[in-house]
């Protein structure tokens, strides 16, 4: 009985993406707490009679039981979802707010891109992703601020944090005026490479506030500064990822708050 040889394990996860498979199935991409990013087949979830299809919509925080085929490493193969319990099904909160939905999509794609290997545990990124999705669902801050804070912090967890309070080249401490994506962040006057930009000092201040979680400063910033900060964050992210995020150009910057 092959069914008895399947290896079952439980974990909680954020649903990052769903893709149609066959007649009525979906492949669900999940960022799990203990097993990193995994992909699993959810059978029959596109049917209206599905018992757990609604719980596997993107951006939800769920607890799952996953089954791995016999004789294979549990997290290195396509798994099967056998049970799902909703912990916090955030998806519904984004449905009436298009900017929040597009920001959540960019967060999900970033999480997927920052976990190139399936089954590699990334607890810090899981916590960041869960926190960002929760913050978006609660609507405590503007969606683009939450997105940029997430991008900066997730890049830091991947080792790509932009230098903001010191020169990225020589390490001289202080708030420098120029910003160079290839150099890795703010650069001093002596190290400034050709092509470096000169954003207003408040933009780098906003980036520091987003990294530090100083929401008083971030929420008080104006739209122009936010747009410039988002541009620097996106450029920095895409430089390190080498390939652009598909969802980032589609983020609705018309703030809903």
């Amino acid at each position: 009985m092959a069914g008895y040889r399947r290896r079952l394990y439980r974990d909680d996860a954020v649903v990052l993406r769903t893709q149609k498979l066959g007649e009525s199935d979906r492949i669900i991409t999940l960022l799990t707490r203990r097993h990193g990013r995994v992909r699993a087949v959810a059978k029959g979830v596109r049917r209206t009679s599905s018992k757990f299809g609604a719980r596997l919509e993107p951006f939800g925080h769920v607890e799952l039981q996953l089954a791995a085929p016999a004789g294979e490493q549990p997290t290195r193969s396509l798994l099967t979802v056998s049970q799902v319990v909703g912990i916090a099904l955030h998806g519904g909160r984004f449905l009436d707010d298009y900017p929040r939905y597009t920001a959540a999509s960019a967060i999900a794609e970033t999480a997927e891109r920052l976990t190139p290997e399936e089954g590699e545990p990334t607890l810090r990124l899981f916590q960041l992703t869960l926190g960002a999705v929760k913050a978006l669902a609660l609507g405590e801050h503007a969606p683009t601020l939450i997105l940029d804070a997430y991008l900066l912090r997730s890049m830091a967890s991947a080792g790509w944090a932009p230098a903001l309070d010191e020169c990225a080249v020589c390490g001289t401490p202080g708030r420098h005026r120029a910003f160079s994506v290839p150099a890795g962040g703010a650069v001093c006057g002596d190290c400034r490479p050709p092509g470096a930009v000169h954003p207003p000092p408040e933009v780098l201040g906003l980036l520091s506030a987003l990294v530090a979680g100083d929401w008083g400063v971030a929420d008080g910033s104006d739209q122009g500064l936010r747009r410039q900060a988002s541009g620097l964050v996106a450029a920095h992210l895409q430089w390190h990822l080498e390939r652009g995020l598909r969802s980032l150009p589609l983020v609705d910057r018309g703030e809903s708050r």
């Binding site: 993406r17 993107p58 597009t102 999509s105 960019a106 999900a108 794609e109 598909r246 969802s247 150009p249 589609l250 983020v251």
Partner: peptide, 9 residues
């Protein structure tokens, strides 16, 4: 449908 993850805007 709009699906930013698939690049569909």
């Amino acid at each position: 449908a709009i699906n930013p993850l698939e690049g569909i805007g």
